[in-house]
Design a binder for these strands. Structure first.
Lengths: 336, 336
DNA sequence: CTGTTAGCGCATTCAG
DNA sequence: CTGAATGCGCTAACAG
């Protein structure tokens, strides 16, 4: 491995001078600068960022933790975050918690031992509290993405879950639906709670009764509670529409419905939160509340970098990004 | 920051003893081991992996470079790679080249200065040669994913592009299509060349003439060459079917087709390489050659880790994973 | 079983 | 404008 000493020797200067050339600081004569540069090229010198990190006490590595790498919502966030990080000269250490608190914990340990400069953190849920506190204890700056965690004060980039849910459910109500089921995420997750609140508000506003037996809680990653769906559908007065709290759940539910021979939207309407990125463009089918995922990533990263590089520690900020109702064909007028 | 010296002092031992406890090597009395462990807990000690890397000359970080993070094929690879890396105790530094040689180069520089232990590398194309040679020059082990690069000998995990393409095109021919266009990636990319070879073979086998005016080359990431499509469709004898060389191109082409008021498959059939992951499950529409993406990731990672941790340097291996023809509804019988 | 010495590659003092 | 000494946190090699 080539070190600054190798190039110092060959250029007939001290290692310190080489270091100065690399970092462009300190006054150096143009002559030696050029000479050093030349030797660096010749020897194909590459700075060792580990050594650099060790003395500088910063790594220029940021971490992005998402909860589901197969969900287009999160991969779009990742692209935004990556673009913003790259622009600012940071590398990205990437983690995927798979909606699993323990995997998340593993990643936090990694993050801590890697001494990253900051973390863009999409929590798995309220349980993430400890993981986040761990980060705080070790003074790693972070920005929280997508889900609020009670007990943690930090910069926040969120979607407007309540409002988006309300719009979606009101859309169903406008279509004449009165028995609307909700396939929700875990109550441990802030977005799931807020989306349920939006669901209830839509009912209240429109004078519809709220029936908690119509709400199922599963893991956001996928729907696999066939028996719950069965009992939902076999109620005396079964739902005519379903609000899925995110895109992955919508996919799962629709598949389950089709296995039962039910047509969407013919027999039952379905709407959901979050879109499907370019993959969904082939057959635009689902009516969704689409969130600006790319912006989640860039904005979150900007806040994080600001916090890391800024001279003053900013107040905690809370950015709430609106979602857009995109009406397609998975929900239709109720035929009485 | 807590160091081994802090805990050494508090436990009344030397730093070396602490190091031994951490790494579980060297004989240590149960008593001191327990005492040291206790202090580590109390002080919430976290090893500094930078310092560790510096002396050990390895980072326990692997890098995964993919070419399109919004493509489900690659995110599924990412998940496989991540799972395998995690099992072996490696962290993953993640990069997305966006099919851009220059971005790829930037990532290679990052990789080099981060001194990662190895790279799982999906090249953007033949131009990646220099980037890969750069890696070789600095002795970073790597495994190549998805696309072969002439001039580079390395472990390879590929799909069977030629065979998959042939099956897809023969499927169209079976449906009576004779004028089949191909929307292909750049000729700089091995998979694009092989898929075109498969396309030609299907023609040859079935005694169909080959017309190169039916083949368009664009960037794999997305289709945006409307004029090329126009001239394709305005030929005296326009194509009745299109073979898109990957999923992203299929999406783009179908959108463009629809903008022109053409129905798929009513007016024109479309098939493509690669599936859409769970996102595509909502409305299974496209007839595809599906590749085992998750396996690409796990196998590639296994080869890489073997190469890094193995005592002997293995011969270069070349794994070719088959693709599966999944017939859905985007292609149909030609109605004469 | 445990401690001492030395050095990984680099940048921050402080002197010239 | 340039150099020498020192230490970031850790472990390998050698002593004891």
């Amino acid at each position: 491995m080539i070190t600054i000493y190798d190039i110092a020797e060959k250029a007939g200067v001290s290692a310190m001078t080489v270091s100065r050339v690399i970092n462009n600081n300190g006054r150096i004569s143009e002559a030696t600068r050029k000479r050093v540069r030349k030797v660096m090229e010749d020897l194909q010198y590459i700075p060792n960022s580990m050594a650099r990190s060790l003395v500088l006490q910063k790594t220029k590595i940021l971490s992005l933790l998402i909860t589901d790498i197969t969900n287009p919502f999160y991969t779009t966030i990742a692209r935004g975050a990556e673009d913003a990080a790259k622009r600012a000269g940071f590398r990205l250490l990437f983690g995927n918690s798979d909606e699993d608190y323990l995997k998340e914990k593993d990643y936090v340990d990694m993050i801590l031992s890697t001494r990253v400069d900051g973390v863009l953190f999409a929590p798995t849920g309220d349980h993430s509290l400890e993981n986040l506190q761990q980060l705080q204890k070790h003074q790693i700056p972070f920005v929280i993405l997508d889900r609020e965690v009670p007990g943690i004060d930090a910069d926040l980039v969120l979607g407007d879950s309540k409002e988006g849910a309300r719009k979606l459910v009101e859309h169903l109500i406008d279509f004449g639906h009165q028995r609307i089921a909700m396939i929700n995420g875990s109550q441990d997750v802030s977005t799931a709670r807020l989306r349920q609140t939006g669901y209830r508000e839509a009912h209240l506003i429109n004078g519809l009764p709220i029936d908690d037996s119509l709400v199922i809680h599963v893991n956001y990653r996928d729907f696999h509670d066939e028996s719950a769906l069965d009992s939902l559908l076999s109620q005396p007065s079964p739902p005519t529409a379903i609000f899925a709290a995110n895109n992955m759940l919508a996919v799962g539910v629709i598949q389950s419905l089709r296995q039962r021979g039910l047509q969407v939207p013919g027999d039952i309407s379905v709407v959901c939160f979050d879109d499907f990125g370019s993959a969904g463009a082939i057959s635009p089918f689902l009516t969704v509340a689409s969130q600006p995922a790319y912006q989640f990533g860039t904005l979150g990263m900007q806040l994080l970098i600001e916090r890391i590089e800024g001279d003053v520690v900013p107040e905690n900020r809370k950015i709430i990004l609106p979602s857009e109702l995109i009406i397609r064909s998975s929900a239709s007028m109720l035929n009485h």
